Amino acid sequence: MSKKDKGYIPVMLTPFTESGAVDFSGLTKLTELYLGAGAAGLFANCQSSEMFNLSEEEQLAVTKQVLQVADGAVPVVATGTFGGPVEKQADFVKRMYETGVDAVIVITNMLAGESESADVFDERFGQLLDATPGIPLGFYECPEPFKRVLTAEQLKRFVSTGRVIYHKDTCLDIEQIRAKLDATKAVSKFGLYDAYMVHAVESLKAGSAGLSCIQGNYYPELVVWLCNHFDDDELADQVERVRQFFVERMDVMHAVYPIVAKYFLQKRGLPISTFTRKNAGVFDASVRGQIDSLYVQFQQLMEQIELKPLLA
Protein backbone atom coordinates (compact mmCIF):
# COMPACT_ATOMS: atom_id res chain seq x y z
CA MET A 1 0.00 0.00 0.00
CA SER A 2 2.95 2.31 -0.63
CA LYS A 3 2.37 5.68 -2.24
CA LYS A 4 5.56 5.41 -4.31
CA ASP A 5 3.73 3.65 -7.16
CA LYS A 6 0.36 4.86 -8.41
CA GLY A 7 -2.16 2.07 -8.44
CA TYR A 8 -5.79 1.14 -8.71
CA ILE A 9 -7.41 -0.64 -5.75
CA PRO A 10 -10.78 -2.11 -6.81
CA VAL A 11 -13.69 -1.81 -4.41
CA MET A 12 -14.82 -5.31 -5.20
CA LEU A 13 -18.30 -6.43 -6.12
CA THR A 14 -19.81 -9.60 -4.68
CA PRO A 15 -21.38 -11.81 -7.35
CA PHE A 16 -24.50 -13.70 -6.29
CA THR A 17 -26.43 -16.53 -7.87
CA GLU A 18 -30.01 -15.86 -8.95
CA SER A 19 -31.12 -17.50 -5.70
CA GLY A 20 -29.14 -14.94 -3.70
CA ALA A 21 -26.22 -17.09 -2.53
CA VAL A 22 -22.64 -15.87 -2.88
CA ASP A 23 -21.34 -16.98 -6.27
CA PHE A 24 -17.79 -18.04 -5.47
CA SER A 25 -17.08 -19.12 -9.05
CA GLY A 26 -18.15 -15.68 -10.26
CA LEU A 27 -16.03 -14.10 -7.53
CA THR A 28 -13.01 -16.01 -8.79
CA LYS A 29 -13.53 -14.77 -12.36
CA LEU A 30 -14.12 -11.21 -11.15
CA THR A 31 -10.94 -11.27 -9.05
CA GLU A 32 -9.00 -12.56 -12.05
CA LEU A 33 -10.39 -9.67 -14.11
CA TYR A 34 -9.12 -7.09 -11.60
CA LEU A 35 -5.71 -8.77 -11.50
CA GLY A 36 -5.54 -9.06 -15.27
CA ALA A 37 -6.31 -5.35 -15.57
CA GLY A 38 -3.26 -4.57 -13.44
CA ALA A 39 -4.83 -3.75 -10.09
CA ALA A 40 -2.23 -2.84 -7.46
CA GLY A 41 -4.29 -4.35 -4.66
CA LEU A 42 -7.80 -5.54 -3.83
CA PHE A 43 -10.35 -4.13 -1.38
CA ALA A 44 -12.64 -7.02 -0.50
CA ASN A 45 -15.69 -6.74 1.74
CA CYS A 46 -16.48 -3.08 1.08
CA GLN A 47 -19.66 -1.16 0.29
CA SER A 48 -19.58 -2.26 -3.36
CA SER A 49 -19.36 -5.82 -2.02
CA GLU A 50 -22.71 -5.22 -0.28
CA MET A 51 -20.90 -5.85 3.00
CA PHE A 52 -23.85 -4.66 5.08
CA ASN A 53 -25.93 -7.42 3.47
CA LEU A 54 -23.44 -10.21 4.16
CA SER A 55 -23.25 -12.25 7.34
CA GLU A 56 -19.96 -12.26 9.24
CA GLU A 57 -19.24 -15.77 7.99
CA GLU A 58 -19.93 -14.70 4.40
CA GLN A 59 -17.66 -11.68 4.79
CA LEU A 60 -14.85 -13.93 5.96
CA ALA A 61 -15.50 -16.52 3.25
CA VAL A 62 -15.56 -13.91 0.48
CA THR A 63 -12.30 -12.41 1.74
CA LYS A 64 -10.64 -15.84 1.95
CA GLN A 65 -11.69 -16.59 -1.63
CA VAL A 66 -10.19 -13.32 -2.87
CA LEU A 67 -6.96 -14.08 -1.01
CA GLN A 68 -6.81 -17.55 -2.49
CA VAL A 69 -7.23 -16.28 -6.04
CA ALA A 70 -4.79 -13.38 -5.55
CA ASP A 71 -2.26 -15.84 -4.10
CA GLY A 72 0.04 -13.08 -2.86
CA ALA A 73 0.25 -11.27 -6.20
CA VAL A 74 -1.08 -8.02 -4.68
CA PRO A 75 -2.04 -6.79 -1.19
CA VAL A 76 -5.61 -7.48 -0.07
CA VAL A 77 -7.52 -5.43 2.48
CA ALA A 78 -11.01 -5.95 3.88
CA THR A 79 -13.42 -4.15 6.19
CA GLY A 80 -13.61 -5.36 9.76
CA THR A 81 -15.70 -2.87 11.79
CA PHE A 82 -19.49 -2.89 11.79
CA GLY A 83 -20.61 -1.02 14.87
CA GLY A 84 -21.31 -1.85 18.46
CA PRO A 85 -18.91 -1.73 21.41
CA VAL A 86 -15.24 -1.26 20.54
CA GLU A 87 -14.44 -4.64 22.07
CA LYS A 88 -16.87 -6.37 19.70
CA GLN A 89 -15.45 -4.54 16.70
CA ALA A 90 -11.93 -5.44 17.78
CA ASP A 91 -12.87 -9.11 17.95
CA PHE A 92 -14.03 -9.10 14.32
CA VAL A 93 -10.95 -7.13 13.26
CA LYS A 94 -8.88 -9.98 14.66
CA ARG A 95 -10.98 -12.59 12.87
CA MET A 96 -10.67 -10.73 9.59
CA TYR A 97 -6.91 -10.34 10.01
CA GLU A 98 -6.60 -14.09 10.58
CA THR A 99 -7.79 -14.63 6.99
CA GLY A 100 -4.42 -13.32 5.83
CA VAL A 101 -5.30 -9.79 4.68
CA ASP A 102 -2.58 -7.15 4.66
CA ALA A 103 -4.71 -4.69 6.61
CA VAL A 104 -8.17 -4.53 8.15
CA ILE A 105 -10.22 -1.49 7.20
CA VAL A 106 -12.02 0.64 9.77
CA ILE A 107 -15.22 2.30 8.59
CA THR A 108 -15.02 5.84 9.93
CA ASN A 109 -18.76 6.04 10.68
CA MET A 110 -18.76 2.90 12.83
CA LEU A 111 -16.73 4.18 15.78
CA ALA A 112 -18.82 7.26 16.57
CA GLY A 113 -22.37 8.29 15.79
CA GLU A 114 -23.32 11.09 13.42
CA SER A 115 -23.96 13.49 16.31
CA GLU A 116 -20.82 12.52 18.21
CA SER A 117 -17.66 14.61 18.05
CA ALA A 118 -14.29 13.99 16.45
CA ASP A 119 -12.88 13.67 19.96
CA VAL A 120 -15.18 10.71 20.61
CA PHE A 121 -14.04 9.09 17.37
CA ASP A 122 -10.38 9.67 18.26
CA GLU A 123 -10.84 8.13 21.71
CA ARG A 124 -12.56 5.04 20.35
CA PHE A 125 -10.04 4.56 17.58
CA GLY A 126 -7.34 4.70 20.24
CA GLN A 127 -9.19 1.97 22.11
CA LEU A 128 -9.41 -0.09 18.92
CA LEU A 129 -5.66 0.28 18.38
CA ASP A 130 -5.00 -0.94 21.92
CA ALA A 131 -7.38 -3.89 21.48
CA THR A 132 -5.81 -5.05 18.19
CA PRO A 133 -2.05 -4.93 18.82
CA GLY A 134 0.16 -5.43 15.79
CA ILE A 135 -2.67 -5.48 13.23
CA PRO A 136 -2.23 -3.05 10.30
CA LEU A 137 -5.33 -0.93 9.79
CA GLY A 138 -6.81 1.41 7.24
CA PHE A 139 -9.70 3.86 6.98
CA TYR A 140 -12.70 3.97 4.68
CA GLU A 141 -14.89 7.08 4.64
CA CYS A 142 -17.94 5.00 3.73
CA PRO A 143 -20.96 7.13 2.70
CA GLU A 144 -23.46 4.80 4.38
CA PRO A 145 -25.19 5.08 6.77
CA PHE A 146 -23.60 8.53 6.98
CA LYS A 147 -20.24 9.92 5.97
CA ARG A 148 -17.60 10.80 8.56
CA VAL A 149 -14.67 12.51 6.85
CA LEU A 150 -11.37 12.63 8.73
CA THR A 151 -9.40 15.85 8.90
CA ALA A 152 -5.78 16.13 7.84
CA GLU A 153 -4.81 16.58 11.48
CA GLN A 154 -6.61 13.42 12.54
CA LEU A 155 -5.10 11.39 9.74
CA LYS A 156 -1.61 12.64 10.58
CA ARG A 157 -1.98 11.51 14.19
CA PHE A 158 -3.31 8.10 13.26
CA VAL A 159 -0.76 7.44 10.53
CA SER A 160 2.09 8.49 12.85
CA THR A 161 1.29 5.48 15.06
CA GLY A 162 2.69 3.25 12.31
CA ARG A 163 -0.47 1.14 12.39
CA VAL A 164 -2.49 2.88 9.65
CA ILE A 165 -1.25 2.05 6.16
CA TYR A 166 -4.27 2.70 3.93
CA HIS A 167 -6.95 5.35 3.51
CA LYS A 168 -9.83 5.32 1.02
CA ASP A 169 -10.84 8.95 0.78
CA THR A 170 -14.35 10.07 -0.20
CA CYS A 171 -14.25 13.75 0.82
CA LEU A 172 -14.74 14.88 -2.84
CA ASP A 173 -12.59 17.96 -2.13
CA ILE A 174 -9.18 18.26 -3.80
CA GLU A 175 -8.00 20.83 -1.26
CA GLN A 176 -8.73 18.43 1.60
CA ILE A 177 -6.90 15.72 -0.35
CA ARG A 178 -3.85 17.94 -0.69
CA ALA A 179 -3.95 18.75 3.02
CA LYS A 180 -4.12 15.07 3.94
CA LEU A 181 -1.28 14.20 1.59
CA ASP A 182 0.89 16.96 3.01
CA ALA A 183 0.12 15.86 6.57
CA THR A 184 1.12 12.24 5.89
CA LYS A 185 3.95 12.66 3.37
CA ALA A 186 6.65 11.63 5.85
CA VAL A 187 5.26 8.09 6.21
CA SER A 188 6.32 5.96 3.25
CA LYS A 189 4.26 2.89 4.21
CA PHE A 190 0.98 4.80 4.07
CA GLY A 191 -1.10 5.34 0.95
CA LEU A 192 -4.15 7.54 0.31
CA TYR A 193 -6.42 6.25 -2.44
CA ASP A 194 -8.97 8.65 -3.88
CA ALA A 195 -12.50 7.52 -4.74
CA TYR A 196 -13.54 10.62 -6.69
CA MET A 197 -12.80 10.44 -10.40
CA VAL A 198 -13.73 14.07 -11.09
CA HIS A 199 -10.37 15.20 -9.69
CA ALA A 200 -8.50 11.91 -10.21
CA VAL A 201 -5.68 13.41 -12.29
CA GLU A 202 -5.24 16.32 -9.87
CA SER A 203 -5.18 13.92 -6.95
CA LEU A 204 -2.57 11.66 -8.54
CA LYS A 205 -0.40 14.67 -9.39
CA ALA A 206 -0.76 15.92 -5.80
CA GLY A 207 0.73 12.69 -4.49
CA SER A 208 -2.10 10.25 -3.80
CA ALA A 209 -1.05 6.61 -3.97
CA GLY A 210 -3.76 5.82 -6.48
CA LEU A 211 -7.46 5.47 -7.12
CA SER A 212 -10.16 3.34 -5.51
CA CYS A 213 -13.38 4.06 -7.37
CA ILE A 214 -16.55 2.30 -8.48
CA GLN A 215 -15.75 3.06 -12.13
CA GLY A 216 -13.25 0.21 -11.99
CA ASN A 217 -16.21 -2.15 -11.63
CA TYR A 218 -17.07 -1.30 -15.21
CA TYR A 219 -13.66 -1.01 -16.87
CA PRO A 220 -10.76 -1.63 -14.48
CA GLU A 221 -8.16 -1.51 -17.25
CA LEU A 222 -9.14 2.11 -18.02
CA VAL A 223 -8.57 3.19 -14.40
CA VAL A 224 -5.22 1.39 -14.39
CA TRP A 225 -4.32 3.16 -17.65
CA LEU A 226 -5.03 6.53 -16.04
CA CYS A 227 -2.87 5.65 -13.02
CA ASN A 228 -0.04 4.74 -15.39
CA HIS A 229 -0.28 7.75 -17.71
CA PHE A 230 -1.76 10.66 -15.70
CA ASP A 231 1.52 12.62 -15.97
CA ASP A 232 2.66 11.44 -19.41
CA ASP A 233 3.14 14.63 -21.44
CA GLU A 234 3.15 12.71 -24.71
CA LEU A 235 -0.31 11.34 -23.94
CA ALA A 236 -1.73 14.53 -22.43
CA ASP A 237 -4.57 14.74 -24.97
CA GLN A 238 -5.58 11.15 -24.35
CA VAL A 239 -5.39 11.61 -20.59
CA GLU A 240 -7.73 14.59 -20.85
CA ARG A 241 -10.11 12.57 -23.04
CA VAL A 242 -10.20 9.77 -20.45
CA ARG A 243 -10.65 12.27 -17.61
CA GLN A 244 -13.60 13.86 -19.37
CA PHE A 245 -15.09 10.44 -20.05
CA PHE A 246 -15.15 9.71 -16.33
CA VAL A 247 -16.43 13.16 -15.35
CA GLU A 248 -19.28 13.27 -17.86
CA ARG A 249 -20.59 9.81 -16.95
CA MET A 250 -20.58 9.99 -13.15
CA ASP A 251 -24.36 9.99 -12.79
CA VAL A 252 -25.12 7.04 -15.04
CA MET A 253 -22.53 4.88 -13.27
CA HIS A 254 -23.90 5.68 -9.81
CA ALA A 255 -27.62 5.24 -10.56
CA VAL A 256 -28.97 1.81 -9.50
CA TYR A 257 -25.44 0.72 -8.52
CA PRO A 258 -24.17 -2.01 -8.21
CA ILE A 259 -26.80 -3.65 -10.45
CA VAL A 260 -25.69 -1.48 -13.37
CA ALA A 261 -22.03 -2.43 -12.89
CA LYS A 262 -22.90 -6.13 -12.89
CA TYR A 263 -25.00 -5.65 -16.03
CA PHE A 264 -22.11 -3.82 -17.70
CA LEU A 265 -19.72 -6.65 -16.84
CA GLN A 266 -22.28 -9.10 -18.23
CA LYS A 267 -22.22 -7.19 -21.50
CA ARG A 268 -18.45 -7.43 -21.46
CA GLY A 269 -18.67 -11.21 -21.23
CA LEU A 270 -18.13 -11.86 -17.53
CA PRO A 271 -20.43 -14.66 -16.26
CA ILE A 272 -22.02 -12.69 -13.44
CA SER A 273 -25.63 -12.26 -12.32
CA THR A 274 -27.17 -8.83 -11.78
CA PHE A 275 -28.67 -10.07 -8.50
CA THR A 276 -28.04 -7.79 -5.54
CA ARG A 277 -29.09 -8.11 -1.92
CA LYS A 278 -29.23 -4.39 -1.22
CA ASN A 279 -32.08 -2.20 -2.43
CA ALA A 280 -30.25 -0.42 -5.23
CA GLY A 281 -33.27 0.97 -7.06
CA VAL A 282 -35.20 -0.03 -10.17
CA PHE A 283 -33.22 -1.37 -13.11
CA ASP A 284 -35.76 -0.43 -15.77
CA ALA A 285 -35.59 -0.05 -19.54
CA SER A 286 -34.41 3.55 -19.27
CA VAL A 287 -31.47 2.66 -17.02
CA ARG A 288 -30.64 -0.35 -19.20
CA GLY A 289 -30.58 1.90 -22.27
CA GLN A 290 -28.18 4.32 -20.58
CA ILE A 291 -25.79 1.49 -19.71
CA ASP A 292 -26.05 0.09 -23.24
CA SER A 293 -25.00 3.53 -24.52
CA LEU A 294 -22.18 3.69 -21.98
CA TYR A 295 -20.92 0.34 -23.25
CA VAL A 296 -20.73 1.65 -26.83
CA GLN A 297 -19.02 4.85 -25.68
CA PHE A 298 -16.49 2.81 -23.70
CA GLN A 299 -15.63 0.72 -26.74
CA GLN A 300 -15.14 3.87 -28.79
CA LEU A 301 -12.86 5.40 -26.18
CA MET A 302 -10.73 2.27 -25.96
CA GLU A 303 -10.20 2.42 -29.72
CA GLN A 304 -9.31 6.10 -29.56
CA ILE A 305 -6.58 5.59 -26.96
CA GLU A 306 -5.52 2.28 -28.52
CA LEU A 307 -6.06 0.26 -25.34
CA LYS A 308 -7.15 -3.33 -25.86
CA PRO A 309 -9.99 -4.35 -23.54
CA LEU A 310 -9.55 -7.48 -21.44
CA LEU A 311 -13.08 -8.61 -22.22
CA ALA A 312 -15.56 -7.81 -24.97
Rank of each mutant, 00 (worst) to 15 (best):
M1N: 08
S2M: 11
K3M: 08
K4C: 10
S25Y: 14
K29W: 06
L33V: 11
G36I: 07
A37H: 01
G41D: 10
F43L: 08
E50V: 01
F52T: 14
L54P: 01
Q68Y: 15
A70I: 01
A70K: 07
T79Y: 07
G83L: 02
G83C: 04
V86G: 03
E87Q: 13
E87N: 11
K88H: 14
R95Q: 15
T99R: 05
A103L: 05
N109A: 03
M110A: 14
E116F: 00
V120G: 05
R124T: 07
Q127T: 03
L128K: 02
D130V: 06
P136L: 04
L137D: 07
F139N: 00
Y140A: 12
E141P: 03
C142L: 12
P145I: 09
P145G: 10
K147A: 14
V149R: 00
L150S: 08
A152F: 10
A152K: 12
F158G: 01
G162K: 02
Y166D: 08
I174D: 04
E175G: 05
E175H: 12
A179Y: 07
K180I: 00
K185N: 07
A186F: 12
V187W: 15
K189S: 14
K189E: 14
L192P: 04
Y196L: 04
Y196Q: 11
H199F: 10
L204W: 00
K205R: 15
L211G: 02
S212K: 04
S212M: 15
S212Y: 01
P220R: 06
V224R: 12
N228C: 08
D233H: 13
E234V: 07
E234C: 06
E234A: 12
A236K: 14
V239I: 05
R243V: 01
F245N: 01
V247P: 00
V247H: 09
M250Q: 15
V252E: 10
V256R: 08
I259A: 11
I259D: 05
Y263Q: 07
L265P: 02
Q266I: 01
P271R: 10
T276P: 02
R288E: 15
Q290L: 14
I291W: 07
D292E: 12
S293A: 14
Y295I: 02
L301K: 14
L301D: 09
L301S: 06
Q304D: 13
K308Y: 04
P309K: 12
